[in-house]
């Protein structure tokens, strides 16, 4: 599974960074920067919690991975 962001939905709430500081940084405007997108098969509870917590439904898990970045 890959972690991905629908950039058209993201409003820089910052919850994903707070919940997954190792995987997701934020830029100077507060928008997420994905550092590690690969999630092991079966997923990780912390990742799933972060996906569920995104207020804009922008953070998602995708399988197969996106065509490009």
């Amino acid at each position: 599974m890959n972690l991905a962001i629908d950039r058209t939905r993201c409003d820089a709430h910052g919850l994903c960074h707070a919940l997954l500081p190792g995987r997701i940084d934020v830029d100077e405007w507060g928008f997420p920067v994905l550092r590690d997108v690969i999630v092991p098969a079966g997923g990780q509870p912390a990742v799933r919690r972060a996906v569920a917590a995104c207020p804009s439904l922008a953070l998602y898990l995708t399988n197969p991975p996106p065509i490009t970045r």
């Binding site: 950039r7 058209t8 993201c10 409003d11 820089a12 830029d27 405007w29 507060g30 928008f31």
Partner: peptide
């Protein structure tokens, strides 16, 4: 004007 990094960056 739909993606933050583009709108601000």
């Amino acid at each position: 004007r739909q993606c933050g990094p583009c709108v601000f960056g």
